[in-house]
């Protein structure tokens, strides 16, 4: 009989957290998708060996403290303005890898103009878009991406289009712009989805090296605290309700 102690040896190591992910405990709620995406970004940067050449632009929202977790250079942006800040960084330092990390309240609401125009100009940056359908940090208010009928703290009876408008598919919008080279929608709720999301993030970073234009990776995520569900139930709810409206897959790959 093999003892567990005989298995836990350095030579048998198959998975550990990325070296770029700092030991600071994350402030995210238990089960939050942010943590998985943080680790994927750290892994991609580590594998591409571009730690000293990468600049992240942190948004306003739950991930505002992203600079505490990934050991690269960061820049903080005003709410929604991350693509504009990233534009400036990339134009001044064209050899650096510049990415923004934004939620849906940041990217799809207050930052719509910056997002669409950065995409339209074809800025050579990567945008990571975490779409959980609500404003997580401020208490689960309705966001532009909230599904019809979905309950949020500012629409307790569910979103109703005659009053609140329709949910917006940012990725579909920007995929039509000639400035974007790669637009994809991923999720991180299962191991298979995590693998695919990692490939997508890697590709989005490599597109910067090829100077192809803007790459946007949307990650359909959960906000179990805001949705008032357990982490496991939130993942199931997402698969059942979010994916029919936000179908996973590549929207554009040129």
């Amino acid at each position: 009989m093999i003892d567990v102690k005989d298995i836990i040896k350095p030579e048998n190591l198959v998975f550990k957290k990325s070296k770029l992910l700092l030991d600071t405990p994350m402030h995210y709620c238990p089960g939050c998708s942010h943590g998985v995406v943080h680790n994927l970004i750290a892994e991609v940067i580590e594998e591409m060996n571009i730690q000293s050449e990468t600049i992240g632009v942190a948004p306003v929202g739950c991930s505002v403290l992203a600079y505490n977790y990934i050991d690269i250079d960061w820049h903080e942006a005003a709410h929604g303005r991350a693509p504009a800040v990233a534009t400036g960084l990339k134009r001044l330092l064209p050899d650096k890898f510049v990415f923004t990390y934004q939620g849906d309240g940041d990217l799809a609401a207050i930052g719509t103009a910056e997002t669409i125009h950065a995409c339209n100009r074809g800025e050579n940056i990567t945008v990571i878009f975490i779409n959980n359908g609500i404003y997580g940090m401020t208490g689960g208010q309705m966001a532009p991406t909230t599904l019809e009928g979905m309950v949020a703290s500012t629409c307790p009876d569910g979103r109703e289009h005659s009053r609140d408008g329709y949910p917006i598919k940012i990725s579909d919008l920007v995929a039509q712009l000639p400035g974007t080279c790669y637009v994809t929608r991923q999720a991180v709720h299962t191991p298979g989805a995590v693998r695919k999301a990692k490939k997508a993030i890697r590709k989005a970073f490599e597109n910067q090296k090829l100077k192809k234009g803007l790459s946007l990776v949307e990650v359909v995520s959960t906000c179990n605290s805001g949705w008032k569900m357990s982490p496991v139930a939130a993942n199931d709810w997402m698969a059942e309700n979010m994916f029919p409206f936000y179908p996973l897959g590549d929207l554009k790959d040129e």
Binding site: V14, G31, C32, V36, H38
Partner: peptide
Amino acid sequence: NCAMVCPDSCITVYRL
């Protein structure tokens, strides 16, 4: 699989 979906990256995996 567990380590991959762990949001807090707190699982290290070993395989014989």
